[in-house]
Each structure stands twice: as structure tokens, then as C-alpha cells.
Simulated scan of single mutants.
Amino acid sequence: DITKEKENVQLVTKLFKAIENSPTIVVITDKNGIIEFVNPKFEKVTGYTFKEVKGLNPHVLSTGYTTKAAYKKMWQTISSGENWQGEFKNKKKDGTVYWEEAIITPVKNEEGIITNYIALKEDITEKKAQEKKFLYALFEAQENEKLKFGEILHDNLSQILSAMSFFIEAVLNPKNTKDQLKIEYLQKIRQLTYDAQRESRNISHGLMSKQLIESGLVAATIEVCTNYNLSKNINFTFKNSGYHEDLFEVEIKQNIFRIIQEITTNIVSHSQATKATIKFSVKDNEWFILEVNDNGIGIDETQIKENSKCFGLKNIQQRVALLNGIIKRNSKPNMGTKYIIKLPLVLEPINSELNLLN
């Protein structure tokens, strides 16, 4: 039918023009992922021409940020006939890093066999930058509030309790009283006062990160372990392999420290663990690795997904994202939980106005 054939040709022509003029990046590959077509938007964003990338794998754009496991999962999804949606941190021809959101759809022939893949992509670099600026502003406000409250707690409450201890010591002096019962009561009050002093000191240090500012991330982390070892029924161990304080600016270390605080708080509050380990390491002079594991009851991932109030875990994820990092959590019932967080060593200042992302 010549009429039907003409209609099909016209339709294909219209679709091709729509793709060519689309504000969305379009990439078509064969079943093995080899590029067969890219539209002008791809050329504009990446700097590569169609001729330069034809016959290549889209991996030519890779920065190495996406893990092999993530790529494997993506291929399992699309090769099974399902759509895949996610984000890539890619690199343009001139070396500029950019973010893109992608939807990859398999194309099947009449027999239902996959012959091609179509990727529709959007440059979301500016969107990610705005998100990071928002997160930075949010966390900066949180830090200011914590600092203010910590100072008040340390300067006021601790001084009051110290004065109380002084007067109680005076009353306990044998020259001042011989009432044994009163002495016993006052001894109990003294012990409670010491406990309150210790707790207020722990809280204020956690809020102010004074140790972090004065001595660095390692010293602050050791202090977290020490405080928990003294006050809780859990043994924290700290290990360091290759990390030194010059690797990060103070703003980056502040966020890493808050991540550690969030994770250790969850361990102490919910895990029922008796042992936990915090480890710093450096891999290939490119990545800082933070590992935290415990021997507790584990985390129910289903409850986390269903519970919108898991602010601590969400806070961890947001901070890792702010630092361009990767987070992986492994947990099994009664076999503990392990966090592995990878952060790139080359990070621009977290408070820069325009270059928060790259």
C-alpha cells in the first residue's frame, strides 16, 4: 500500500525532526550499547560531534563516579526489557564535569527481541548546584544553632553545676557538720551533680564540635569513641589508615563529623550493639573512605522506607550528597550494620557560590 508507506515515511520524518530539535539529549545505541545516533543537543552539551562518538560506548563520558555495581544493575534492568531511570556524573570533551538525569528504554522488534536502547537525558548540573546551595545553607543554619545552644549550655549550666559542687564540698567538710545522714544525702547529691556535669559537657561538645575545630577530625572522632566508652555499655574502636588533617577544609570535616555523630547516635540508641568500629582510610589518593560497623540487631530497611521520620538517616544521605560522595549500607538481622562512605579527596570549598558541584 503506497499510501500507507508514504504515511509511515512522513511519520518517521516528523519524529526525526522532533528528535533533532528536542531540548532533551537523545542517544540511541545498539543492543550492546554502541552509539548509533546522537541528536544536536548531545553535541551542544558534551562538545562531542556525532562522528566522534559514533561506534563508541557512552562510557566515553564517564568520570568513574558511577560504580561497577550500579552499571551492572542498570544493564540487568534494561536487558530484562524494563526502563531504567537514574543520574550520571559525566565529563564533557573539554573535561568539564556535569550531571545528567537519564531514562533508558529498550526497543524491541516484532519478535520481542531487544535491538536497541534509547536514552533520554537532561543536563541537571544547575539544578544539582542549587540543591547543594540549599543544603549548605540548611546545614550552616543548623551548625549556628548548635553552636549557640552549646555555648549557652557550657557557659551557664556547667558553671551553675560547678558552683553547686563547690558548696556541697564545703558542707561535706567534717569541720562544718557531723550529721552522718546529711552527709550521706549530700554525697548522693554530689554524685548526681558530677553526672550532670559530665552529661552537659558531652552534649555541649557534641553540639559545638570544639575538639574538631581545635584539634581536627581524628581527635574529635576519638573523643566521640571515648565519651561513649565511658558512659554507655558499648565499646567503640577507632582506626586510621592514611588520613591526615590536610586532606579537607574545615567545612568538609564538619560535615564528616556530623555524619559520624548521626551514625554513632543511631548505634547507641537503637542497635543494642556491644562493639562498634570507626575507620578512616584513603584509596588510590582519590577517595577518603569512612567505615562504621557494629555488631547490633541490624536495620530493617523496609521500616526505613515506610517511616518518613527517619531524619537521622536522611540527614546522613543529604550530607554525603553535599560532598559528592557515595554511601552504602549493609545490614542483616542480628548481624549488625556497616556503613561505607566514599568521598572524593578533591573537593571545592563547600561554601563557594557557583562551583559547589564540579
Rank of each mutant, 00 (worst) to 15 (best):
V9P: 00
Q10T: 10
V12Q: 11
T13V: 01
F16P: 00
V26K: 02
V26Q: 01
V27R: 05
I28M: 11
E36I: 06
F37S: 11
N39S: 03
K44V: 08
N57P: 01
V60A: 08
V60H: 03
S62Q: 15
A69K: 15
Q76N: 15
T77G: 04
S79C: 07
G86P: 09
G86A: 11
W99L: 08
E100D: 06
I104L: 05
V107T: 04
I114S: 07
N116W: 03
L120W: 02
K121H: 03
E122I: 08
K127R: 15
K127W: 05
Q130E: 15
K133C: 07
F134L: 14
A141D: 11
K146I: 01
N156V: 15
A163R: 12
F166Y: 10
F167R: 07
I168W: 03
E169Q: 13
D179W: 12
Q180G: 04
Y185Q: 10
Y185D: 09
Q191T: 11
Q197P: 00
E199R: 09
R201S: 08
I203N: 08
S204Y: 03
G206M: 10
S209A: 12
S209I: 02
I213N: 05
E214Y: 04
E214I: 09
S215F: 14
S215H: 15
S215P: 02
G216L: 11
A219E: 15
A220M: 10
I222W: 02
S231M: 05
K232D: 06
K232W: 03
N233F: 06
Y243N: 08
V250G: 00
K253A: 08
K253G: 04
I260F: 05
Q261I: 03
N266Y: 07
I267D: 09
S271I: 01
T277I: 12
F280E: 10
K283R: 13
D284E: 15
E286T: 12
I289M: 13
V292C: 13
D294V: 02
D294I: 06
I297S: 09
G298E: 13
N307Y: 03
N307F: 04
C310Y: 04
N315Q: 09
V320G: 05
L322H: 13
L322R: 12
I326F: 14
N330Q: 08
S331G: 10
S331A: 12
M335A: 07
K342L: 10
N351M: 08
S352R: 14
